[in-house]
Design a binder for these strands. Structure first.
Lengths: 132, 132
DNA sequence: AGTATTTGTTTAGCTAGGTAAATAAATACG
DNA sequence: CGTATTTATTTACCTAGCTAAACAAATACT
């Protein structure tokens, strides 16, 4: 395996593991938090909007939303178009998200802190260049 | 989610998906190929050597090796220390690996080609800086 | 020598992604 | 209007990582 790929995969796994560790105190997993944060910023979204935005396949989102629903974080309501389901944050989520967001921001700052803003931009540019 | 993490995870998933697409013609998955390539370079290895080198947990390797064994790519033989199993490439693997390696190198070149050698080094350095 | 600890591997069960195919509602077309 | 196609979601099943705990062999300790 090309060392660049190897390093990329490693770091990706490492960061998600760290993220899960931080989220443990809130009884959440990284993929769940990603969706909650997404809904928090965009307001109610259909499943399709969510998976297109997060760039994963639909079944992953269906499963995650089902779990979040049973845990009481989101509500799934029928849209005007009867095919689609609109997902919204529950009052419980609205109440608890701010403090979670805060701990996550601290984590991200700690993780990325060693990079200057220019380095962060450079990193994004280099990522883009890898045939997207 | 911090856009830098988002981009990192995205690209990581994207590349493994592409890799799997390329490997489909050889009836292999990326994780399997990673192990075969590892054995090809280092010669016979114990399970522990493999998971420490690839930096994943032991059960992932156990499962992958079991699958590779039933598919005829590797052999698992008892070591002198009766606890450990030594994994070696099968003659079938020795025969077929070169051509697979060739297609993978072409894929990696295509994927990374847009980056100069300096940019690749820079990318590695930036990855390292993210709290390892 | 006999017990306690460590080490290598495996098993069980979890999240998290993927594809392929089923289903139901909406839309397009002849 | 009725059928064909598209679109949104779901279901079933696959790889790929993880942790926790079981187990057996080796090593350390007294």
């Amino acid at each position: 395996m090309n060392p660049l790929f190897h390093a990329l995969f490693q770091k990706s796994r490492y960061i998600t593991n760290c993220l899960n560790e931080v989220l443990k105190q809130h009884n959440l997993y990284s993929s769940q938090w990603t969706i909650l944060y997404c809904l928090h910023n965009h307001g109610p979204m259909t499943l399709t909007q969510i998976w297109k935005y997060l760039n994963v396949e639909a079944p992953s989102i269906t499963r995650a939303i089902t779990r979040l629903e049973t845990l009481g974080w989101v509500l799934r309501i029928d849209g005007e178009d009867k095919r689609e389901k609109i997902v919204t944050l529950s009052p419980y989520a609205e109440k608890h998200l701010p403090v979670i967001t805060k701990t996550i921001l601290a984590f991200e700052e700690e993780m990325i802190g060693a990079l200057t803003v220019e380095e962060q931009q450079q990193f994004m540019i280099l990522l883009e260049k890898m045939k997207g």
